[in-house]
Nucleic acid binder design. Structure first.
Lengths: 235, 235, 235, 235
DNA sequence: CATGAATGAGCGTTCATTCAT
DNA sequence: GATGAATGAACGCTCATTCAT
């Protein structure tokens, strides 16, 4: 007598690929594998956060992850590969926080959209503090591949900034300026604010500058205000 | 047979202190020593520029300087020490470019003084491109000592920025804002503009963004304008 | 006042290359360097002899040579490099033992010249037993470079054999035969005799086959006789 | 419904020892086991042929055999063990090709028997080219166990050669010579001819030396002729 | 002083083998 | 029986630093 699928007594028909048994041994193995991988990435993030890219050795990572030397190489082809993955993941996360500014009649005012972009970026960065600290602080101290990735990321972000300014100029919201320079300045300002916020988060309530950098939304708003109006008294 | 002082064959009498012969053997040795030291620093700068801090090895430096391995350690206690000195020199140079804003009746308008500070900084950085590239791009990828030095430098610079803003607020030139945030943003913006200018200088006339970053004074002016007024159309 | 050369007070004239002071510091350093290099080669030979190419590790060699890990790499770029040198040296030594057969009226009979070639080869191989053991026994168990070198050597040697046979045929001293086959057989026979002699030399007087392989010249003569007449009773 | 023993559908009753059902489940398992074993040996041969003993890794073998890592160790205790088996199999095959020279009145002439021995050996070696290439070329580049086996094989073969020569001498067919030397030379010559034939077989019709080594029987005959008469013109 | 040969701790990586599933 | 993830000893090699000359 055959038991129906779903019954605990059901015996799945033997097949090469066995797509009908998603909870089978293979699937569990797959899950375990993914978990292990995540555990290594987690350990590596902690090590990179504490020591930086160059000071961190594979030895440190496997110690932190409590695995054998060889195990590391089952999951990653080397330190570069692992770091490259962390970088790619992080950059992708940040990239997806940026929404294109909508100009339709039903869309929120551009200023609000811009502010929300800032807010989302700040929040995302703070949520991935370990890897963000490294990437935002040191743009170049990596292997060639990771450097290229980071450079490319900042290049694209810069491009977005430039476009935003040019659109603003078209809408008569932004005055005449050197787009190249202003976009670089703005990106640099944003970047350092993020670094500072990461430090504030790490320092906890004992931050010497008080609560300035502990409220992500407030910083985002202050940033936007500064970019739009500068520091001069309103005329 | 004794040769007179000044002759290349002159042999200075041995003495413990030799205060009476300031141009004698000791002084010449001192001068030679200083020259040698400078030569090593020069070679090291070139190597660091080409390879970055971590990729540069002592081997590269002594090759560039055409000295023996051991000689290097007669002048520096190691790669860290040498790099620390380069960092300190550079930071000192930049620091001296910043003049306090004078408020007397005969002083130029604060805005002009500020602009001149920017201009001087930009010029100084471009003149020390090799070491500036490393320090401005990567704040952390060094040994502990150099990191501390760089951190301290940026901390002091930030303090200067803060003071400037607060003074401006006292003079009713600067509107209300979070001083901590604005100073960080401004410093970050300045820093990245400098990085971009260094790249433009290295790229030469083939720079993809055109002449935006090739004229130090123009960039300094644009920076100041942006800091003061932001990008909004003037109201 | 100048002191004569040889005096402990003699000051050698300064010169860039100093070719007039062959016993100077540089020359002594050079000699020491060469000695050290030889010592490492010697140690390596012993290790290769005892363990074979693949079983021998750099660790074994530096242990045998009583040097530090790094020192090894001052003299050789790696295990392959060192082994390649041993191989090249050995092959060159063997190559130079082979003299072209002279046919002039004053030249010794070809058979004698051939015998002397054999004798010289045998002697040379026995003098370099360590490396010869490896190369003669295993033609292929190396890295690509060394394999190519050894293959090329045997190829050239084979070519010499072929030519010798063809010359002999032209002189009516050698009968009709497949030159390709006979040269390969002869080379193989010679090679294995050499291996056997190396073993006899290593075994010392306790050799199970008695004195057959202990007298190089006798073996060379026996070889020649066999190559010329085979084992058949003379007809 | 039960099928009778012998039927492919027969299912043997389960029992601890099952001595009465030699074709039952245990036997099938045994057969499967043997097949699996053979498959691994086959895969290993291909890998050893392509990469040589040292370059071949267990990883390569299990990849080629399409089995899991652990499975390999169910059948062999390691790479050495597997290789040892290949060696033993090959040596046994070659050994059985050699027939004792019969001297009875009805036996073929000794020369013909000798020739046939050569022919059989050549044929067998060419049929097992993969493993033969490794064993014939490199007598020593293995682990201790395999080396001992190969050494022992060549020792025994040498002994056969010696006996054959001594028998020939007793029959007045072979002249006086140093049996030890001549047997070594002959074995070495044979061995290298075999290596050369393996190369010719691998090279296919594009062999640089033409057809000399492509006809096994011709080579065997040429070998015999050379061993018996040498290269001298017949006197 | 200047030299550069020598050092050895440390690196990233491989791979034969084991064992829980 | 079959699996393949996990293991860790061992590898070849680098490089900042020391020290006898």
């Amino acid at each position: 007598m055959l038991c129906p699928p779903g019954s605990p007594w059901y015996i799945a028909p033997v097949s090469e690929e066995d797509p009908g048994a998603p909870d089978g041994r293979a699937a569990r193995a797959e899950r375990r594998r993914a978990q292990r991988r995540e555990a290594i990435l987690l350990a590596a993030k902690a090590v990179f956060r504490d020591k930086g890219y160059h000071q961190a050795s594979v030895h440190d990572i496997i110690d932190e992850a409590r695995i054998a030397r060889g195990t590391f190489y089952l999951y990653f082809s080397g330190k570069q590969d692992l770091f490259g993955e962390l970088v790619a993941d992080f950059l992708e996360i940040v990239r997806t926080q940026v929404r294109r500014i909508e100009l339709g009649p039903d869309a929120p005012p551009p200023r609000i959209q811009l502010r929300d972009n800032f807010r989302r970026i700040v929040t995302a960065v703070l949520e991935h503090a370990a890897i963000a600290s490294i990437i935002l602080r040191d743009s170049r101290g990596y292997d060639d591949e990771s450097r290229a990735r980071v450079d490319s990321f900042f290049g694209q972000t810069l491009q977005l900034m430039r476009q935003a300014i040019q659109v603003g100029q078209g809408l008569q919201l932004v005055g005449p300026c050197d787009v190249n320079v202003v976009s670089v300045v703005a990106l640099g300002g944003l970047r350092h604010s993020l670094v500072r916020m990461l430090e504030a988060q790490a320092a906890g309530p004992a931050d010497p500058d008080g609560p300035s950098f502990t409220n992500p939304e407030a910083v985002a708003d202050e940033l936007l205000e500064f970019f739009l109006r500068g520091v001069s008294v309103e005329s």
